[in-house]
Design a protein around this nucleic acid. Structure first.
Lengths: 239, 239
DNA sequence: ATAAACAAAAATATCGACATTTTTAATTTT
DNA sequence: AAAATTAAAAATGTCGATATTTTTGTTTAT
């Protein structure tokens, strides 16, 4: 009973080798919600969507029900499903709560991370850097790659955090943060130099400097918040 | 845009006036999981349970899928559903994370709570006190009432916390905490004097003494942890 | 003009039946 | 005896059809 790290038992839906219709619909729906194809607050009509995603009603309902776990969908008894709504308050809430959880997760991860964690983090950072150094094509399909690798980097950073619950909650908030970012950038293609921030995070994590890590990570999330907040606020389409 | 409190839009499943079969099954399943009728880690066979809960397969699957939101059930593609497993690490993790979230939520709630919040809290405390003062019947059905009112008290305490996400995560962890407590007490009927702790929490909240509140609330959660941890550890049925 | 009552339309919720996959058990092979 | 193979059983995953409820639009009354 020495080590009480809570690493096993992932929460939520777990994929398997062969895909199921539920999982296919779930994955598509998630992407469509995060990308804004399905708009915030929008009613998710089962009858309509089942033909769009090519599944039966029960299957679609199950996929939607599973998305409630990630708070991307709300289910209201007898009134069906809706895409999770957005608001400026919610964005602020997400950012602040993210700082609390993500800083905690990163610090604990640094404190507990072993050599394998270091290697994984270096790999993730390297892959992210490769994309971020190509500032050429802004609206190219590099964006999709960047999004993937950005998630993987942040995931690798907190991977050694012994608290499964903090990791889980952090992950949900990160996804929502991403949604806001992607919704806000649908028209404009803004790009502050995020790479410098990622570099600072990586450096202080590798140096095991938790105070510095907390500082730059907080700054990173706050900066993201400020940019996205302005964009959401000034975007009439996101009312 | 002065007040950015994130109070609207509850996450998860919302009930309505007339009940649905899904919601009925969901409620029963939740209670059966928390009470230990359905054991931790147990496989939830749809074919078997659908007759037990008197619903169709699709309905039961939907109920189970919705319980994934609360992390009471896990869904594994092509391998069905399981009751969330338990472990000593998990219990420790829950308690520690609960302290972080519950203290934060309570402190923010105290800082933001208005008169109506005070009134609600006083009411919840009063109702809880009435049950806690009757130390006579231990194994009576007062237990069910206490459990309800204990939840309501803690809920009332954090009700004015402006962060919807912290409230949501806190609530999930509280439910899991309750499950461990109830599982551990299935044989023995232990009862430390919890009322004193609740009184301290209530008093410091009403006095708006956030430092004291953080202290006694932390103590409350830690004490609960210690008691339950020992019981779970020494209970062979919970291996 | 506003509100209430009602009918038609749409959408949700639900079930039973069936195809596919996984698990279990028995059999054969090394 | 242990491992691999295969067959039977069980369970998951899926769809289409239908009952129930909510929503929408129209008519009627205040």
């Amino acid at each position: 009973m020495d080590d009480l790290a809570n690493t096993e038992m992932p929460i939520g839906v777990i994929a398997s080798a062969t895909s199921t219709r539920v999982l296919e619909a779930l994955t598509q729906l998630r992407e469509d919600i995060i990308s804004g194809v399905l708009l915030p607050g929008e009613k998710l009509r089962v009858q309509h969507l089942k033909s769009k995603y090519g599944v039966g009603a029960a299957t679609l309902r199950e996929a939607l029900s599973l998305l409630v776990s990630e708070s991307l969908v709300t289910a209201t008894s007898q009134r069906g499903f809706n895409v999770a709504a957005i608001s400026l308050q919610d964005l602020k809430d997400i950012s602040e709560t993210r700082i609390m959880l993500e800083v905690q997760a990163a610090v604990e991860s640094v404190k507990n991370g072993d050599e394998d964690w270091e290697v994984q983090l270096i790999g993730a950072y390297h892959r992210l850097t490769k994309v971020e150094e190509q500032t050429d094509d802004i609206a190219s399909d590099q964006t999709v790659l960047w999004e993937q690798r950005n998630i993987e980097f942040h995931e690798a950073l907190v991977a050694a955090c012994p608290s499964r619950w903090i990791r889980q909650f952090r992950s949900i908030l990160h996804t929502h943060s991403e949604r806001y970012r992607r919704l806000s950038l649908q028209t404009v293609g803004v790009s502050r130099n995020v790479h410098k921030e990622h570099q600072q995070i990586f450096d202080s994590a590798m140096a095991r400097d938790t105070d510095q890590l907390a500082k730059v990570l907080t700054n990173h999330i706050e900066k993201t918040f400020e940019v996205v907040f302005k964009l959401v606020k000034d975007n009439p389409a996101l009312a």
